[in-house]
Write a protein that binds this DNA or RNA. Structure first.
Lengths: 165, 165
DNA sequence: AAATATTAATTGACACTTGAAGTACTTCTC
DNA sequence: GAGAAGTACTTCAAGTGTCAATTAATATTT
């Protein structure tokens, strides 16, 4: 840490500033790589579980999760915003789920450009089963991390989220 | 926080345990969603910048970053491990980078199944330029977050990383 | 009312990713 | 040293994702 305390007065402040900046840069990149590693790992576990247990995928689960919270249905464009993906992507995923009978497209009589996408009865049943297990997987992944640390993380990541958005 | 302190002795411990468990479950899912949101956002910025500034992509950048740290070259299988993606994926990305003249495949005379992938001279120049900017993007994204908080995050995420791996 | 602009969703081209199957080569074992 | 097992890489199909272009419907402007 403090390895070179004695230096010429004249250069010390600059040297320290540089060191601090350098460390900070390093720190930011380090933080980013660590976030990425954690997220990728967890995502990978969730994906594998979804595939193994329900022969489905994360984007499909995500779309259904959005619909579950909106029983009145959502437009394609609303899904696109909420899932933070492009419209073309939503079209594709909805096509698959519709083919599987888990969601339905309903036309809007007032505006014929619009579709309202809803969970079918089967889709609702299916989603509830998946959501319950999904929660369990996440809990197990974080098992052993103290509530205090989890709360700290939620707090700090909240700051990051605010900041980068 | 402490909203219902007075209760019948008999049921209190159970109720508290249930509440604690419930909150913890909620907390874990919340933490996971927040991690995901942060990571996705930052990744998206980096992707856009790579595309806009260098007409390239994150996987390509990632592969080149691995090679930069290994001047002697890496096998396809080593790249696969380090990048934590499948072998088929590495083949595809390497194909593109080779076509662009940024990496080369060199045969191993001792084991003819093996390729050693290296950065070309052009690839080295290109990567250095990209890396410098990439670091800057990350720093800017985290600008305004205190060093203390960054350190806390690195620490806590380290615990998560250990735990989920 | 006709021309223009905007909006909702789809389509097509390309890139990335996985998992499974295939090819070529090396090593192990009897 | 020949057959079996294992390793290194590629190929292929299916899904996910972006962007740009297109189609169809609605809104606005003149």
């Amino acid at each position: 840490m403090a390895k070179e305390k004695k230096k010429l007065r004249l250069v010390e402040p600059l040297a320290d500033a540089e060191t601090r900046i350098h460390d900070d840069h390093h720190l930011s990149v380090r933080l980013w790589l660590r976030m990425l590693a954690c997220t990728n790992r967890i995502e990978s576990v969730v994906r594998q579980n979804l595939q193994a247990r329900f022969t489905t995928t994360l984007p499909r689960f995500d779309l259904m999760a959005q619909l579950e919270r909106a029983p009145q249905g959502l437009r394609m464009s609303e899904l696109s915003q909420r899932m933070m993906v492009t419209g073309g992507n939503v079209t594709g995923i909805t096509d698959i789920l519709e083919k599987e009978g888990l969601v339905v497209r309903e036309v809007d009589t007032a505006d014929r450009r619009v579709f309202y996408v809803k969970l079918s009865a089967e889709g609702q049943r299916q989603f509830r089963r998946m959501a319950a297990e999904h929660e369990q997987w996440v809990i197990e992944l974080f098992e052993g991390i103290s509530v205090k640390h989890k709360n700290q993380l939620v707090e700090l990541l909240g700051e990051i989220k605010q900041h980068v958005q």
